[in-house]
Write a protein that binds this DNA or RNA. Structure first.
Length: 276
DNA sequence: AACCTCGTCAACCGCCGTATT
DNA sequence: AAATACGGCGGTTGACGAGGT
């Protein structure tokens, strides 16, 4: 025989997490740290399987998570890393402090992919699409994503065909969301008083995702005053700072961009209202 | 105002490599 | 060495909200 079975899977709850469940999980992990996920639900009094707890923690409750849309610089990093690594979301996420693989994967599928296609770039190969972009499907059969099924990923170490003769823009002006500061990484919604849902105006950084409404400020407040055990962090603050994209302070990215992807995106974003 | 369609994202599923017995 | 569970990863799904008709 091998190990003990994980969880009996009988009577386990599924679906969205409630604030109460979140609270249980967070307070348990705060006082005990991350040990074996199998034991977590039982010890924390949750009717979930360990896997579900781990997912909830890593994708949502972890204290070092950033919230909100990816910044321009982050998006840029994702595109570049995706070109090198392909759909290795966890690897890509490891280069983006405070971001999860799930988050990046979602952002890629819902935003970046579309953006690239509209610009005539194949999101899989990162090369120019062979066919004209979206509007004119050949036979009206399939969406363009289906026709481009070349093998993922350009070579690791990536080809260095510099310059597609594209236009240079100095700013990579995608979305309007500002970079978060390191301070914000630990509970970005530390607005203490106003619940994220209610703070309709300001801070684009705290957007809807800030808890998805699930996290209750009342019980978060004391937690935020605690000292976080080092083991709780997947990445140390130093690492975060080291890995932090330069955009926060400067603009010196040095990615290879053979097809001027970033410039295209910049231009696209700049004009995309008028294009619509 | 009601209904419909589309986009987004949290959570689940299933597979794979590794650890444990 | 084999069998089995664990943890992690990537793909997919479905609920929900926003925008359009």
């Amino acid at each position: 025989m091998g190990r003990q079975p994980c969880c009996d899977k009988v009577g386990l709850k599924k679906g969205p997490w409630t604030a109460e469940e979140d609270q249980k999980l967070v307070s348990f992990l705060l006082s005990n740290g991350q040990c074996c996920w199998r034991a977590v639900p039982k010890l924390a009094g949750l009717l979930r399987c360990g896997k579900s707890c781990r997912l909830r923690w890593t994708n949502y409750l972890r204290p070092d998570l950033k919230r909100g849309l990816l910044s321009e610089a982050e998006e840029k990093t994702v595109i570049d890393l995706h070109e090198q690594l392909g759909n290795r979301w966890s690897k890509i996420a490891s280069h983006l402090p405070g971001r999860t693989d799930n988050e990046i994967k979602n952002h890629w599928n819902t935003h970046i992919k579309k953006k690239l296609r509209k610009m005539g770039i194949d999101p899989v190969t990162h090369k120019p699409l062979r066919h004209a972009p979206p509007q004119a499907p050949a036979n009206g059969i399939d969406s363009p994503e289906d026709e481009v099924e070349e093998k993922p990923v350009a070579a690791v170490g990536s080809a260095t065909t510099s310059d597609g003769g594209g236009h240079i823009v100095d700013a990579f002006c995608t979305d309007e969301v500002p970079m978060l500061h390191i301070d914000d990484i630990i509970f970005p919604c530390d607005d203490t008083t106003a619940s994220p849902a209610e703070s309709s105006s300001s801070s684009a950084a705290s957007v809807s995702s800030c808890g998805g409404g699930a996290i209750d400020e009342e019980w978060l407040a004391p937690i935020m005053d605690l000292e976080w055990p080092e083991s709780m962090y997947l990445m140390s603050l130093d690492d975060m700072v080291a890995a932090a994209p330069p955009t926060a302070t400067s603009s010196s990215w040095e990615f290879e961009d053979p097809f001027n992807t970033y410039q295209r995106i910049a231009l696209f974003d700049h004009h995309h209202e008028t294009w619509a």
